[in-house]
Design a protein around this nucleic acid. Structure first.
Length: 494
DNA sequence: TGAAATGTTGGGGCG
DNA sequence: ACGCCCCAACATTTC
């Protein structure tokens, strides 16, 4: 709930640095942290430390962000900031406002004459950062930008014709020929700045979800699943490399197994770098090229986002704009709540709500269902995921939704429509994933777990399930919905 | 990183 | 023994 005054005005806090004895006469350098909330393999932090100047570590809750984080990502971010503050040997200065205001305030207050940050790739962010850089340069302040997000710059890898790639496979082949993913940078030693810098506490940013009047704490449910921050990211990567990466190609499509990396939220907030993941995979006793290729998809998504700034809302494939969506708000809400009547879809949507994350195979199934069975615009699904994912990535989320909708670059063709029953039976054969997230179906035999409406009455009785009361009747008939989607697809092409 | 419809093949039952 | 039909099983095409 935003009020008339900013938290900084309401509650002025001064960070008092522990080490006041460092009397360096040199001017400090500011490192502005964004989606790179770590100390290792951080090119901007590293370069700032190399100057030998005292370092002011800064995070800004940007007031003028046109693509603000979703609620679950804010939750994750809150704990990332606290973890980063602990991981850094200097305090993290936390502020709210526009970057121009905040940095424009810190520079005269501290005498800082140099600013470093990691580059961003969304058009509005690029423009704001460029304007800030220009304004600072005009004041004689040095600005250096770095790559803290990606393995390669989106403009670096081009086809023979000099255009950006639009198909993943040749893109990634070229990437592997061209890009030398070097060693991650170590965490640098930082020199303390001996003065004071105004800072909010992380709490004052108000990132945590508001507890409802009835006392429901929505953020609390995410806690068991995640340890946000660099330490949690390293642990997660290590566990993945120790236990799952060897089976990645075989089992990553199985939502009933815990065989994916679950690193997406950490990568999205930059708790760990893609280079650290890449490198650790290759250094591990057993690694997986498939895992590297997933990191490659992340790079490819940023290529698409960089060259297509409207990717969040506009189909990359322009003729897709003519598609006549006919899904309703009620249908969208049933999907959001996990009440479609198709168990694999509902399990996925409830997992997303509870964990702030959804298994990748299930993302394809739930997205296909929203788009092709319910005929709801993919953008509505993108928005919901953006709000619910505790590590929503602007490039990956848009790219993934466009892929399923069939309107993206190198996308799945529109007519590739997932059957929620056969997908469920193939990838969750025992129904364990469904039973975990839809406990009302836990006593249903596996034969009927993905199609409860076809189960004989006595089976439903024995399982204690009354369709329409305990669990919904399917909201659409998949076979009919499929025909309708193909019909609309044909109309669009005509 | 589909699914369904359609086409082909080959073995076995049977007149 | 032979042709015919049936129908899995697999392959190809279509959306």
């Amino acid at each position: 709930m935003r009020q008339d005054t900013t938290p900084l005005e309401r509650n002025r806090v001064r960070v008092r640095y522990a080490d006041m004895s460092t009397h360096s006469s040199s001017k400090p350098v500011i490192v502005w942290f964004r989606r790179d909330l770590r100390t290792t393999d951080h090119a901007a932090l590293h370069a700032a430390a190399e100057t030998g100047k005292p370092v002011i570590a800064l995070f800004i809750r940007e007031a003028d962000h046109s693509y603000p984080m979703g609620a679950a990502s804010d939750w994750f971010l809150h704990y990332c900031l606290k973890a980063l503050d602990e991981a850094l040997s200097v305090p993290l200065v936390v502020r709210e406002g526009t970057s121009q205001e905040v940095i424009g305030d810190i520079i005269p207050a501290t005498g800082a004459d140099e600013v470093h940050w990691g580059r961003r790739y969304q058009k509005d962010a690029i423009e704001r950062d460029a304007a800030l850089k220009e304004a600072l340069n005009a004041q004689g302040i040095t600005v250096e930008t770095h790559n803290t997000l990606l393995l390669s710059e989106p403009w670096e890898i081009k086809t023979g014709g000099g255009t950006p790639y639009r198909v993943f496979t040749p893109y990634f082949r070229k990437f592997r020929e061209q890009v030398d993913v070097g060693e991650p940078l170590p965490a640098p030693n930082l020199k303390h700045y001996a003065g004071n810098v105004e800072s909010l506490t992380v709490e004052e940013l108000g990132l945590l979800p508001i507890i409802t009047p009835s006392g429901h704490d929505w953020g609390k449910k995410l806690e068991p699943y995640w340890t946000p921050g660099p330490e949690g990211a390293r642990e997660r990567l290590q566990e993945f490399l120790d236990k799952a990466v060897g089976y990645y190609a075989e089992y990553r499509d199985r939502p009933d197994y815990d065989r994916t990396s679950r690193l997406s939220p950490f990568l999205a907030h930059g708790c760990i770098s893609a280079r650290e993941c890449w490198h650790a995979n290759n250094a591990a006793e057993v690694g997986s090229d498939k895992f590297l290729s997933e990191l490659g998809w992340r790079e490819f998504s940023y290529v698409l986002l960089y060259h297509n700034p409207e990717m969040k809302t506009q189909p990359l494939n322009p003729q897709s704009k003519a598609f006549q969506w006919e899904g309703t708000q009620e249908q969208l809400e049933a999907w959001q709540r996990g009440m479609t009547g198709y168990p694999i879809v509902d399990a996925g949507m409830r997992q997303l709500w509870d964990m702030g994350w959804q298994h990748n195979r299930v993302r394809m199934i739930t997205a296909s269902f929203l788009i092709k069975d319910l005929l709801v615009e993919w953008q509505k699904g993108e928005e919901w995921f953006w709000d619910c994912l505790c590590g929503g990535d602007p490039a990956n989320n848009s790219q993934g939704w466009q892929w399923v909708a069939g309107c993206g670059a190198d996308a799945s063709p529109f007519f590739r429509i997932f059957n929620p029953i056969s997908q469920g039976e193939r990838y969750d054969p025992q129904g364990e994933y469904v039973k975990r997230w839809c406990p009302e179906l836990k006593d249903l035999p596996k034969k009927w777990i993905h199609r409860p409406w076809e189960a004989p009455d006595h089976v439903l009785d024995d399982a204690g399930v009354t369709l329409g009361t305990d669990y919904p009747v399917p909201m659409v008939d998949h076979a009919k919905a499929r025909d309708r989607a193909l019909e609309l697809y044909k109309e669009m092409r005509a």
